[in-house]
Each structure stands twice: as structure tokens, then as C-alpha cells.
Nucleic acid binder design. Structure first.
Lengths: 136, 136
DNA sequence: GATATAACTTGTATTTTGCAAGTGATTATT
DNA sequence: AATAATCACTTGCAAAATACAAGTTATATC
């Protein structure tokens, strides 16, 4: 997997974070769930960044094992599954928002996107609270 | 390297963050610089997590190329080099602090360390400001 | 019953990582 | 002055992780 099983066990909170959600693909799945209303395996596969299918399966398993997401059957379509964030997962919102703020400050590329940043600037408290509370 | 050169170019701020500092070893180097007063190649190698030497060299090069750190000669010891954070690097402080806060909430391991968390709880504004301002 | 869809799994080539050992430029020791 | 340490890497190779293509299973639709 990535670094599963044997956490470095240093007790460091930064390391704990890195071990549970801190790899590129895990964070992108969390972004899709938190910011883009995406829910299914197919949704995640279709994200711009192009995650490969075996890695996605691996990361979903990992995030579920860590209690960041839960998997459930879609009641309307029994061949589809729905992933959603737990409270532990939604509590990652401030981290994602800080990353967006940081990029807003330092990403000088002309095509840098700022739609979420605008929401944060307009009403961070409210926006963050909405992300952290159950069912959007 | 990790994902150098061709950024996915999606324009997404989360992706930009992941591409510039978002891998395990980069973040640990930043932690050492920001929170632990470590400065040299040898310091980073000695960190608990055990980064290997070729990966460390690679990450330092990458972080320098991204403008997160700068390398300079140690004036006191001419065979040693000193790494330090740029403003862009110090601006990562809020992200690191949010990771620490998140881990403080959700890391249930008995040996989870909370010394930095205590500082944050005591005076987040002041602590964060001290991390973000030049020369500690 | 045949075809399609959603969510994976499997196989394999490529890339990245980890580990051990080696190099070059100082600096300290005998 | 020669010898040994130290510091910051680099190199070579085995092991692990990743990307890509193709295949499988369980529904669902025609």
C-alpha cells in the first residue's frame, strides 16, 4: 500500500496525518468528496488528475480502514456504491482550506483557479462549518 | 522525482499544493525546519522517521526549486550547508498547525505527542505569527 | 437471453523508493 | 605533513509502489 500497517510510531501528529490521509491520491479523493459532491468510484476515476483504478481501490480501502470515509450501497441503484466522509473526514476541511489559501497566495500560474478561494474569503467560518457538519 | 516537471496543470489549488510540498518526506523536512529548528542535511537524516539519503537529496532539490527553502553555506563551518524556509515556506505554517490540531482530535494512540498542540491551544495567533515571520 | 454498466481485480512494464557503499571537499588529529 | 574524521551528497541495485490494459462479477436494461 502506501505506508500502511506499521506507522512510524513516532507519536508525531504531523506523521500521523501523513500516514492516514497524506498522499496525493487520498487527498484528491477527499477533495472530490468535500468540495465537489462526488461520491462514487466512477466519479473519482473521472477526476481530472487521472488516478488509476487499482490505486483508487487501494486508497478507498485505506481511507475506510482509517475511518475517514464509509462505503454504502446506493439505495436507488443497487449496482452502485456511495462513499461519504465521516466526521473524522469532514474535520479535514480546515487543512484543505489552508492549502487552498496557501496556493491562492503563491500559485502564480495564469490558469490557477480561485472559485473556492472566493467562497473562503467571503465567509470562511460559514463555509467551513458547512463542510464540517453532516450531510451537505 | 515525485511528480516534477509536468504538473497536472488542472489549475486546482489542492493539486498545486500536493505538487509542491505534498509528499511525506517534503512535509517532514518542513516540519523539522518550522518546528524543530533543524537546518542541515545531517539533521534531516537524523529525524525519527528515517528518510534515506538519496530521497532527502532529491526532496531538498525539489523544495529549493519550488522556492520553499534556500540553501546557504554555514559561515561557521565551511563544510556544512544550512537550509532555511523562505516566506513561501513559512506560510505553510497554518497547514501544519491544522494537521496537528486534526491529529490532536483524532489520534487515539496512547503515545500521541501533544507538546506543539499545547502551544497552539495557548496562543495560536502568536505562535503562528512567530512561525511565519523571518528568522526565529 | 444478450448487452451494458459499475466496481473492482489481475498481470505486467515502468517508476520510485530504500539500503549499502562510495566520493569529494573541508576540518581536526597525530 | 600525513592521517583520520566529518559533512553533504552520489551511485548501484534490489524491493516496492504505480500506471496502464485487460479481465471479472454483480446488477440492470433492452
Amino acid at each position: 500500500m502506501r505506508n500502511d500497517g506499521k506507522k512510524r510510531n513516532s507519536g508525531c501528529p504531523v506523521t500521523y496525518g501523513l500516514d492516514t490521509f497524506g498522499d496525493r491520491w487520498s487527498l484528491l479523493v477527499i477533495r472530490e468528496l468535500l468540495l465537489r459532491g462526488k461520491k462514487t468510484y466512477g466519479d473519482f476515476l473521472a477526476a481530472d488528475e487521472g488516478i488509476s483504478t487499482n490505486i483508487l481501490a487501494d486508497r478507498l480501502k485505506h481511507l475506510e480502514a482509517e475511518g475517514i470515509i464509509v462505503k454504502s450501497r446506493d439505495p436507488d441503484n443497487r449496482r452502485s456504491f456511495t462513499y461519504s466522509l465521516t466526521q473524522k473526514g469532514r474535520d479535514l476541511a480546515p487543512i484543505i482550506l489552508e492549502i487552498i489559501i496557501w496556493s491562492g497566495m503563491h500559485d502564480k500560474r495564469p490558469h490557477a483557479r480561485r472559485n473556492v478561494l472566493k467562497k473562503i474569503n467571503k465567509d470562511r467560518e460559514g463555509f467551513e462549518a458547512s463542510l464540517r457538519s453532516p450531510q451537505d
